[in-house]
Design a protein around this nucleic acid. Structure first.
Length: 203
DNA sequence: TGCAAACCATAAC
DNA sequence: GTTATGGTTTGCA
């Protein structure tokens, strides 16, 4: 039985669908309804679930971990994500996305380079990411370092990235299935935005 | 800058 | 099977 629950922390709703020790979906947003809706949309077709008003300890712990990530802190969580029901390509793209450390971003194209397929296919996977912000799809931007899109809204994506500033200055790479994927300081993207909208952001 | 065409996995018909 | 749909990219005027 999958446990579905949501909790408000510092005025943000965080949601989780899990069956200890597996996490089936995560979500966050500004209303409980929005978050629960996202979770239910992400659940595999006909698995039984139950909505809990008071989350069990495992869920409580996972929910506060989401809040930690939301705040831009960089603890290493090792949750087991339930992805078997997803297409293989989707699994690989999500896995690559998980390798992007806080403080860095990469592009849809860079991910495509290591997992195959094309940039738009990667964009599709991000758009359907059932594990935000646990799988940090907010760290994936366009090749010109503008933001691209975000399910929760561009403002949210921008704010998440701002909190993850680490002061890195150089391009780097991470290992994804034996291949090197390029990553870039998040500042590259933030500065790019500043230069385009020297005063006002478009949101 | 702006626009058109190529790109590619999925979901929906 | 086929078509439609993107959180893209690249090239060219």
């Amino acid at each position: 039985m999958i446990q579905v629950c949501a909790r408000n922390i510092d005025d943000v709703w965080f949601g989780l669908a899990c069956a200890e020790p597996q996490v089936f979906a995560t979500s966050f947003g500004k209303s409980e309804q929005e978050v629960l809706g996202n979770l239910l949309d992400s659940l595999p077709f006909n698995v039984p679930f139950q909505v809990y008003s008071t989350p069990l300890p495992f869920a409580q712990n996972a929910l506060s971990s989401l809040k930690t990530i939301y705040d831009g802190e960089d603890k290493n969580f090792h949750f087991t994500l339930a992805v078997e029901h997803l297409p293989v390509y989707t699994q690989r793209a999500l896995k690559a996305t998980r390798q992007i450390p806080a403080g860095y971003v990469t592009s849809y194209g860079s991910i495509a380079k290591v997992v195959g397929g094309g940039p738009r296919a990667v964009g599709n996977v991000m758009a359907n990411n059932a594990f935000a912000p646990l799988v940090p799809c907010h760290r994936v931007v366009k090749s010109d370092f503008t933001l691209g899109g975000y399910g929760g809204g561009l403002k949210v994506k921008y704010q998440l990235l701002c909190r993850e500033k680490r002061g890195f200055t150089a391009e780097d790479t991470v290992d994804v299935e034996g291949k090197e994927m390029s990553i870039y300081p998040v500042e590259f993207a933030l500065k790019r935005l500043d230069s385009i909208f020297s005063r006002k952001l478009p949101f």
